[in-house]
Each structure stands twice: as C-alpha cells, then as structure tokens.
C-alpha cells in the first residue's frame, strides 16, 4: 500500500510544492536574515580579541564556543554571512552586467560576429575564478575586491552563453520577425522582445552562479587570497581551524556547515526557479 502510494505522493509534492524552490528559498532567506541581523546585533563583538576566553567550548555564554583568538564563533559566522553575500552580489552583478549585453550582442549580430564574441568568451573558460584571483592577487595584492572581480569575470561566459541562446530563440520567432519587418532596429528588438524573454534564464543563472561565487570566495579566503583579517569570513575561519583539528574540530565544522547550507540554498533555489519558469522540465529532473 505505502510502496504503491510513495511515487504518487512524491510526484504530487514535486508538482504542487516544488520542494527545491521552498527549501532553497528558506535557506537563502536564513543566510540573508543572519547577515541583516548582524548589522544591528551579534552576541559578542566578532573581532574583539579576548585571550582569557580562548578555545572555549559551546555553552558558557558562547553558544558555539570561541576560536583561538577568543572570538565568539556565532558572531563570526553572522558577520561572515554578510561577507559571503557581499562578495556574491558584487561578483554576480559584474558577471551579469558584462555577460548579458555580450550575449544579446552575440545573439543579434551577424553570425560571424556572434561566433567571434563567443569564441573570445570561451577563452575566459581557460581562466577559472580561482586561478584568475590568484593571478590578480599576485599582481595587485590579495583583497576582497580582486576576489570579487576575478569571480565575476570568470562567470561572464555562462551569462553570455545563456543570454545568447535565449536571444537566438527569440530572434527566430514570428513576432521578432514582425517587429523587424515593421522597421524596428535589431537593438530595439533585443531590448523590447529578447531581454524580457531571457530574464528568467538569467535569474536562474544568477542563483546558480551565486552558489559558485560562495564556493570560490570560501576557497580564496582559505588560501589567503580573499577577505583579509580582521573581517570575519567563513573560508578564513576554516583555514584558522585547520591547525586545531586535533584540539577543536568543531571550529572547522561550523563554518563548513554554513558554507554548505548557503551553497545548497542557492543551488536549490536555482533548480526550483528553473522548474517554476519552465514546467516542461519538471518531469525530467
């Protein structure tokens, strides 16, 4: 009985509720809320060095304990959420602001121009975010700015590609043809007709790219190429925890969970939005 019901129940739940969207939205909201609250309140000063309370265990006035400097872990995690979101928003904005117009251009321009633009963007794929950030860090000195710019530039091709394929589809429709026949310039057709149609694709891409940006920022901060101290960052919390794995493994666990939940949230949100915008795909996933 239950075995026979399970698939139907699962299908119904997926159809109506879109669990990816719900779980993703809740996790993302949690991260955003934590970051917002950290502006007005944290249990302790996240950057205050208090030698007398170094490496305290959870409880005793510090919910998740303290690190090797006596920083309160909860407060550091809260402000770390702010850092993560800040890097993500800037990096994804850089990628979208450059990638979407390039994609539109490549979609409307004559075939060879479009191909050329895409080929040049393909070249960017040879410079993954991490490598680009290390290279920029070596040239200019590592900072949050170089990390954000590097992650953003490395993400441009995915925005351009998705915008281009959407634009090509729109440009081959009858209404785009009608608009062209009525004397509208290609750029006007792109802005009036292609852009609104690719908007949903871009939003989905933004959510997925946000997750990648969080992963990249964490890796860069872990390597010392991201957010410099004293600004708390999840990646650096992990880096500082590594030498203490034998003493206090929890120090690695908490920022690790924070990173994983945030990335999971944005990935699920992206998946959920994709299903929402294009219900035809739902059965396939």
């Amino acid at each position: 009985m239950t075995a026979a019901l399970a698939p139907a129940v699962a299908r119904g739940w997926r159809r109506r509720r879109n669990p990816s969207l719900v779980v993703g939205a809740v996790l993302v909201a949690l991260v955003v809320l934590t970051a917002l609250v950290s502006f007005v309140w944290t249990p302790h000063d996240p950057t205050f060095v208090e030698a007398s309370v170094r490496l305290r265990g959870p409880g005793s006035g510090y919910w998740l304990g303290t690190d090797k400097f006596g920083h309160d872990v909860v407060s550091q995690l809260m402000v770390g959420a702010r850092t993560t979101l800040f890097v993500g928003v800037v990096a994804v904005s850089v990628a979208a602001v450059l990638g979407v117009p390039l994609g539109l251009l490549a979609g409307m321009a004559p075939r060879w121009t479009g191909e050329l633009v895409m080929r040049l963007l393909d070249l960017l794929l040879a410079f993954p975010a991490l490598l680009l950030a290390i290279m920029l860090g070596a040239a200019f000195g590592a900072s949050t700015l170089t990390a954000m710019v590097a992650i953003g530039i490395a993400t441009v091709p995915s925005f351009a590609r998705i915008t281009r394929s959407g634009t090509l589809q729109v440009m081959s429709t009858d209404y785009a043809l009608a608009a062209r026949a009525a004397g509208r310039r290609p750029s006007a057709v792109a802005v009036r007709h292609a852009l609104p149609n690719v908007a949903s694709l871009v939003i989905v891409q933004a959510s997925v790219s946000f997750a990648i940006a969080i992963l990249s920022e964490a890796a860069l901060s872990f390597l010392g190429f991201g957010t410099p101290p004293p600004t708390p960052s999840w990646g650096r919390m992990l880096q500082e925890s590594q030498e203490l794995l034998f003493v206090a493994p929890r120090l690695a666990l908490f920022p690790g969970i924070a990173i994983a939940l945030a990335v999971l949230g944005f990935n699920l949100l992206g998946d959920g939005l994709r299903d929402r915008f294009d219900p035809r795909l739902e059965d396939q996933r």
Binding site: P7, A10, A211, A219, G256, I259, A260, V263, L264, N267
Partner: peptide
C-alpha cells in the same frame, strides 16, 4: 520516481554544496 532515487538525489545535492577543501578537512 522511487524513494531510493530521490534520496540519492538529495545526497548528491548536498555533495555539490561541499567545497573540496572542506571535504578534506572533514576527512582529516
């Protein structure tokens, strides 16, 4: 469409969200 497939799906979704260096620290 079965529970086992959905469960594996959920596990892989979590796996995607874990950066390799974090997996390394946890494995250590």
């Amino acid at each position: 469409r079965r529970l086992s497939g959905l469960l594996l799906s959920a596990v892989s979704q979590v796996g995607v969200a874990v950066p390799a260096f974090l997996a390394g620290i946890l494995l250590i």
